[in-house]
């Protein structure tokens, strides 16, 4: 994996973009994809569409990676200057206490829980607060409705990378790299869509798919891994290649798409893993059912510590995912062949 990719992941994960507030991420991606696409547009909800018109009579393909990340939204600032907040997306209370959050205006806050000296078990957001170092409400640098994300920088561990927003800036980065490598050498009309609000209910994928009406759609995201202490039995591990999804909490993947992915990986000698995951959903659910519907697949990168400030992925998995995606999009698709 080259340093360009690492720099791209580092750059994209550093930007803030909680669900509904993806503008900063979109600006960075737009600069990257503008030279690579025939058409680039932003739709009303803020999805970024980059269309590559290939050569030949392939399918209309939508490939989606989501720009948004989990975060917090301020609900109240009290007279002492402490901020209360709620979650944007599925945030886990246990990851918050003692952690720092940063706002787009540069303000940083420390999260703690009421009566923390008694070490209470925290189950909901009502007892949490954020201390931004303000001496009173008037000097607090944030107001109701401001959004924040984890304040954590990119960590390069050599074979593995760690960031607050691998989910799904890694997917966005991979799509950009795939666009670079594929160029116009594809029989398909490919709509690379960088979607908004996946962490809420995939509103962006749903509305994008409605406007594109693809024949085939693929979600590119991160997924969990089963190689952690005490993990629920789950065969996906870091370093064993991209993950071809069979089913998840909300979607049964089109068997033809699954077969096409695994056949292509085998033909190119790219390692892959299969997953049946019950705890996750992705943009695929909404792409499958929007408008007249489409055949849907999910390709994902194994990721440890999902939805924490330190999401970890394996560098070889990233490269293999790029390679598999390039191979998939460069050739014709036969959805009739299931196996």
């Amino acid at each position: 994996m080259n340093d360009t990719m690492k720099d791209l992941v580092r750059q994209l994960t550093a930007v803030q973009g909680p669900s509904g507030y993806e503008g900063l991420v979109r600006d960075v991606i737009r600069t990257q994809v503008e030279p690579l696409a025939d058409v680039v547009r932003v739709d009303r909800l803020g999805n970024l569409h980059a269309v590559v018109r290939g050569q030949g009579s392939g399918l209309r393909v939508m490939v989606a990676a989501h720009m948004d990340e989990i975060g917090l939204m301020v609900t109240h600032v009290d007279e002492k200057g402490f901020a209360r907040f709620t979650h944007v997306g599925d945030l886990w209370v246990a990851t918050l206490v003692g952690n720092r959050f940063v706002f787009p205006n540069g303000a940083v806050g420390v999260v703690n829980v009421e009566k923390y000296e008694k070490r209470p078990r925290v189950e909901n957001f009502d007892k949490l607060y954020m201390d931004l170092g303000a001496s009173n409400g008037a000097s607090c640098p944030v107001r109701v409705g401001d959004v924040a994300t984890f304040d954590r920088s990119f960590l390069d561990l050599g074979a593995r990378w760690v960031s607050k927003a691998m989910d799904d800036r890694l997917g966005c980065s991979i799509l950009i790299e795939v666009m670079r490598r594929v160029g116009n050498q594809t029989p398909h009309e490919i709509h690379f869509v960088f979607t908004v609000q996946e962490e809420l209910a995939s509103q962006g994928a749903m509305t994008s798919a409605f406007s594109i009406q693809p024949d085939l759609s693929i979600a590119l995201d991160v997924t969990g891994s089963g190689d952690l202490p005490g993990a629920t039995p789950f065969p996906v591990v870091l370093g064993k290649g991209p993950v071809v999804r069979v089913s998840d909490r909300t979607t049964l993947v089109h068997p033809g798409v699954k077969g096409w992915m695994t056949r292509t990986a085998e033909a190119k000698g790219i390692p892959y893993q299969l997953e049946v995951i019950v705890g996750l959903a992705s943009d695929a659910e909404k792409m499958q059912r929007s408008g007249a519907g489409s055949a849907v697949g999910v390709l994902s990168v194994p990721c440890r510590h999902l939805h924490t400030p330190s999401e970890m992925v394996d560098v070889d998995d990233v490269e293999h995912t790029v390679e598999l995606m390039v191979a998939l999009l460069a050739g014709l698709v036969d959805l009739e062949r299931v196996g």
Partner: peptide, 9 residues
């Protein structure tokens, strides 16, 4: 309303 058709701000 928000997620109707191609999306509504």
């Amino acid at each position: 309303v928000n997620r109707s058709r191609a999306g509504v701000p």
